[in-house]
Simulated assay, not measured.
Amino acid sequence: MNKKRRLFSGKIWIILLAMIVLAAFYKLPYYVSAPGSAEVISDYVEVEDGNNSDGEFMFTTVRMGRANIYSYLWAKVADYHKIYRLNEVRSEEETDEEYAVRQLKMMDESQITAILNAYKKAGYEAKIRTNGIYILHVGKGTPAEGSLKAGDRILEIDGKTIASQQFFVDYVSGKEAGDEVKVKVEREDETMEKTLTLERLKETGKIGMGISLVEDRSVEADPEVKFNTETIGGPSAGLMFSLEIYNQLTDEDYTDGKKIAGTGTISEDGKVGPIGGIDQKIVAADEEGAEIFFAPNEEGAEDSDYQTALKTAKDIDSDMVIVPVDTFDDAITYLEQLK
Rank of each mutant, 00 (worst) to 15 (best):
L155K: 15
D158I: 03
E156Y: 13
L196H: 08
E186L: 15
E145R: 15
I154C: 08
L213Q: 10
V214W: 08
D216F: 12
V138W: 03
V169H: 04
K202A: 14
K149C: 01
V138M: 11
G123D: 04
E199D: 15
S173D: 11
D152R: 01
D108I: 14
G208D: 03
M209C: 14
I133T: 02
L196R: 02
L213A: 09
I207C: 06
T142I: 10
L201I: 09
A150Q: 02
I162F: 08
G159H: 05
L201Y: 13
Q111Y: 02
V183N: 04
V181P: 09
S147L: 14
D189A: 09
A177N: 08
V138D: 04
G210A: 04
I133Q: 00
G205V: 06
E193R: 09
L198T: 00
T204D: 05
K175V: 07
T195C: 00
L148I: 06
R153P: 01
D108K: 15
F167M: 11
K140T: 14
I133Y: 04
I207W: 00
G208A: 09
I157L: 12
L198R: 01
R217D: 02
E109D: 12
I162E: 03
G146K: 03
K140N: 14
I157Y: 10
I135M: 04
L196G: 02
L198E: 03
E186D: 13
H137G: 05
L201M: 14
E125I: 11
I162M: 07
G141K: 07
G210F: 06
E199W: 02
E109I: 09
I115T: 08
H137F: 13
